[in-house]
C-alpha cells in the first residue's frame, strides 16, 4: 500500500457549515489535509473545493465515497490519475535593499512572476504555478531573507473533457462510477 499525494475536487453547496462537514470527514478517517482551496464554481450556488491529501489509493477512494454520501456534496472526484492543470498562487515578502532589489527582480522575471508591492526594506512577489515552480522560486529568493509567505494551496482541473458536472439534465452522481 503506497502512500501518495491525491488531488480531489468537489462541487459542494455554498452554505454555512459545508467546509466543516467535508473537513470533518477527513479528520474521522485519519487524513491530514495538505491543502484545501475553496471558491466559486461555474454554477451559481455551488462552491468548488480542491483538496490535497496523502493516502493510499484505497483509503482515499474510501473517503471519496464517504464524501459522496454527504447531501451537500454534489460531486467529488479523485483526479490524481487524470491529465490535470494544477496551480497555486503564492505571495512572498522578501527582504530587499537597494543593493539586492534588482537581483530579485531579475529572478522574478525569469519565473514570470510579479512584484506587487515595494517597501523600503522589502518587495512582495506574486507567483503562480505548480508547487514545483513555487518551490524553485522560493529556493532562489530564500537567500535574501523571507519575511512572510502566503500560499493558496492547489486548485486543479482536468484538461479538456466535459467538466466535473455533466450538462444540465443528467444525474450528477450517475456519472460517478469508477
Amino acid at each position: 500500500m503506497v502512500v501518495t499525494k491525491h488531488t480531489l475536487v468537489a462541487l459542494v453547496e455554498d452554505k454555512p457549515g459545508v467546509l466543516n462537514r467535508v473537513a470533518s470527514l477527513f479528520r474521522r478517517r485519519g487524513f491530514n489535509i495538505e491543502s484545501i482551496a475553496v471558491g466559486h464554481s461555474e454554477k451559481p450556488n455551488l462552491s468548488r473545493m480542491t483538496i490535497v491529501v496523502d493516502g493510499t489509493t484505497t483509503s482515499v477512494e474510501q473517503v471519496r465515497k464517504q464524501l459522496d454520501k454527504l447531501p451537500d456534496v454534489i460531486k467529488v472526484s479523485d483526479i490524481t490519475e487524470d491529465n490535470i492543470i494544477a496551480r497555486e498562487l503564492a505571495l512572498i515578502k522578501v527582504h530587499a535593499t537597494s543593493a539586492t532589489r534588482s537581483e530579485i527582480i531579475e529572478i522574478v522575471d525569469i519565473f514570470r512572476a510579479n512584484i506587487v508591492d515595494v517597501a523600503a526594506d522589502s518587495v512582495t512577489i506574486e507567483a503562480t504555478g505548480d508547487e514545483e515552480k513555487i518551490g524553485s522560486l522560493l529556493k532562489l529568493v530564500r537567500g535574501f531573507g523571507i519575511k512572510e509567505i502566503a500560499r493558496t494551496g492547489r486548485i486543479a482541473m482536468s484538461r479538456g473533457g466535459p467538466g466535473l458536472l455533466p450538462l444540465e439534465g443528467k444525474s450528477a452522481k450517475a456519472n460517478n462510477k469508477k
Binding site: 453547496e13 454520501k69 447531501p71
Partner: peptide, 12 residues
C-alpha cells in the same frame, strides 16, 4: 429535489 443525494437503486 436533492441533487447531492441520489442513491443508486438498480444494480449494474
Amino acid at each position: 429535489e436533492l441533487s447531492g443525494y441520489k442513491p443508486t437503486l438498480q444494480g449494474h
